Amino acid sequence: MTATALPASLADIRDEFLELPEDERLQLLLEFANELPAIPAEYEGHPELQERVVECQSPVYIVVDVDDDDVVAMHATAPREAPTTRGFASILAQGLTGLTADQVLAVPSDFPQSIGLTRAVSPLRISGMTGMLMRAKRQVAAKRRGA
């Protein structure tokens, strides 16, 4: 993965993980789990407006908004009982929100493998984060201005 292809918000998150010893990265992921932004009120209680991420064993739902200026906001819900999955959702929600549609679409698909957690969590969980990223990118492509 080339560093130039990764927007600063995601590069900063990746670097934050990679600067830590491997055995401390899971703790940082749990901190992200506690920082998952709440979804906007218009989506609260309306799972039909959100997309289920079937790659995740836990019930994870995402929805991406693209405003008139082509700026993305990613929203996600994940149960507190699934802190790893919730942490991944938080990383993407925080890292993708504020980017332009083009920046989101250019995020390398292997970003989840680049943050140094492949030995700390199961491949199934990394696959779940990849599923979240792919669905977010697909939603952005479908909702972007002029699409």
Rank of each mutant, 00 (worst) to 15 (best):
L133S: 07
E19C: 07
L92R: 07
K137T: 00
I62C: 08
G45C: 07
A73I: 07
G95N: 01
A41I: 10
A76T: 00
V71Y: 03
D69P: 05
P40Q: 06
I126R: 13
P123A: 04
D69M: 06
T130F: 01
H75I: 00
D102C: 09
S114I: 00
S122C: 03
A136E: 12
G45F: 00
D23E: 15
A78C: 09
P79D: 01
E51I: 11
Q50P: 01
V71I: 13
Y43V: 07
C56L: 02
A141M: 10
D69L: 08
A101T: 12
I62N: 08
A33D: 03
I126T: 14
F17S: 05
H46T: 06
T118S: 10
P112W: 09
E16I: 07
K137N: 05
G146K: 10
T2M: 08
V72M: 07
A3Q: 13
A3G: 00
L49R: 13
R125Y: 12
L6C: 02
Q103T: 07
T130W: 05
V64T: 15
A11M: 12
R138K: 14
K137P: 04
T84H: 04
V104Y: 08
A120N: 08
Y43K: 08
D12K: 12
V104Q: 08
H75V: 01
D12I: 11
G95L: 01
I39S: 11
K143R: 07
P79H: 09
S109I: 09
M129H: 09
P40Y: 06
G98N: 06
Q103E: 15
V107G: 10
F32M: 14
T77G: 06
Q113S: 13
M134T: 14
A82L: 03
I126S: 12
I115L: 08
L105C: 05
G95S: 00
L124N: 11
P40R: 15
P37N: 12
M134V: 12
Q57A: 11
R25T: 11
L92H: 05
A76E: 02
C56H: 03
A33K: 06
H75R: 03
L117E: 09
P108I: 04
V54M: 08
D23P: 02
S127P: 01
D15H: 10
V54L: 09
L29D: 05
E55C: 10
R25C: 04
S114L: 10
R52Q: 13
